[in-house]
Design a protein around this nucleic acid. Structure first.
Length: 402
DNA sequence: AGTCCACAGGAAGGGCAGGCGA
DNA sequence: TCGCCTGCCCTTCCTGTGGACT
């Protein structure tokens, strides 16, 4: 019986007219042929790095802008163009790209160097060597290379927060030690205050050139979406105003193109699933709440045990009485829950920090208020719909079975 | 003007688990 | 393999704070 009904589901799906012709074009991993509204940045980066086409060392460049402003895309676009041109001109150029956010790539000095060696074609044992030896291996491979080497360090702030800036100091010093290889760096970051964390010497060598990526506005986002939609969607499957709506909603969130693409993709997926012929503005709303919900669910999933228990307590309070709560009230309820379930409780000091964390995640709103003689506290309310909160509570309940 | 409440939140450090590296 | 290091979660101790109350 179940096999029969599943067959029906498959057939029904296949009978429907598809919405996507190339869904990949609505993801961030897709590299388009041209990048709208980033001509200035492409030109600026191109001008700086073009030096390598005369076999000279380009200046180090530091690229920054908030999430989804096209930093990585533009850098890779320019890098690919340079590779192509250098091949034509028969010039030795190597470009290594490292995403420092990736696990097991740049958590330690050792891993980053080993990864760079590997990209450069030198195999290094994943563990066991002294860091100094790995440096040596990297220096050796670099010194033997007669040409220009550009290392792109994406999310460079992650690298510095994990391993410090010593590695950048050591790497940027290489040019003083080896004459044959011309090495330069492109650092990409979305943390504007990142430069303050750096040692003055590192900063001066890394920031030879600076490139800023401003956020996209709604009109620019709509342009980008339109060009991606042309590639990814069948033309008659999207209602008028949908692209503008996705653009406007994402423009409110720091002009993040990723968010805009996600919204359009999820709206399309919902339309396909529901068997709706055209992507409508209503589906965009639905897609947005789905994306927000998924984001919150993911954030909750990675929280430590006590955070989940406290969130459970807070949601329980709001299910019973939909008013605002104070830190003290929540702590009392939390203690009761711990006693009832034989769980070791944390102190109010720690609870205070967890409330701040939940506030930062956008799950609750916690505003510091003063009640005069009756003390200073935080007034807490839910920042998400109660229906979503209840689902979160249910998932926490399944984990701990209160 | 001074007191007092109920915390906020900074600083320092403990305990533990897991990963690193010699 | 095992000592060391690091990060995370947490505690303890402390000072600071805004406004109602006296």
């Amino acid at each position: 019986m179940s096999q029969f009904s599943l067959e029906g589901v498959f057939n029904e799906y296949l009978e429907r007219k598809p919405i996507f012709k190339n869904k990949q074009a609505l993801t961030i991993s897709y590299t388009p042929e041209d990048i709208p509204h980033r001509q200035d940045q492409i030109t600026q980066l191109g001008v700086v790095l073009a030096t390598c086409l005369r076999s000279e060392r380009p200046s180090n460049v530091f690229v920054y802008g908030s999430t989804g402003t096209g930093k990585t895309l533009v850098t890779q676009y320019v890098a690919n163009a340079l590779k192509k041109k250098s091949k034509e001109l028969n010039i030795n150029l190597k470009i290594l790209y490292v995403n420092c956010k990736m696990k097991r790539v740049s958590d330690t000095e050792y891993r980053l160097l080993a990864y760079l060696c590997e990209l450069g074609g030198v195999a290094i044992a994943p563990t066991g060597l002294a860091t100094e030896q790995v440096y040596k291996a990297f220096f050796n491979s670099v010194s033997n290379y007669d040409g220009v080497l550009i290392i792109i360090l994406d999310e460079i702030d992650e690298l510095v927060s994990k391993v410090g800036d010593t590695i950048l100091y050591n790497l940027t010093r290489i040019n003083q030690d080896f004459s044959k290889c011309k090495l330069s760096f492109v650092g990409i970051s979305n943390n504007l205050s990142f430069s303050n964390e750096l040692d003055a010497r590192v900063k001066s060598s890394l920031y030879e050139e600076e490139l800023i990526f401003p956020p996209y506005n709604a009109v620019q986002l709509a342009d980008i979406l339109r060009s991606r939609a042309e590639i990814s969607l069948y033309p008659d499957r999207i209602e008028k105003g949908v692209i503008e709506k996705c653009a406007a909603l994402s423009a409110q969130e720091h002009g993040d193109v990723r968010k805009a693409l996600d919204m359009l993709r999820v709206a399309g997926e919902l339309a396909e699933r529901k068997g709706i012929e055209k992507i409508s503005e209503k589906l965009v709303d639905l897609a947005q709440s789905r994306i927000d919900r998924d984001r919150i669910f993911d954030a909750v999933k990675t929280q430590p045990k006590q955070s989940k228990i406290i969130l459970y307590t807070i949601i329980s309070c709001f299910e019973k009485e939909s008013q605002t709560m104070l830190t003290g009230d929540i702590y009392d309820k939390y203690i009761c829950l711990c006693k009832k379930n034989n769980i070791k409780n944390i102190t109010q000091r720690r609870l205070s920090d967890i409330i701040s964390e939940l506030d930062m995640l956008g799950i609750i709103n916690a505003k510091v208020i003063s009640k005069g003689r009756y003390g200073r506290t935080r007034e807490i309310s839910l920042a998400i719909p109660l229906s979503t909160a209840s689902k979160i509570k249910k998932s926490i309940d399944e984990e701990f079975s209160f």
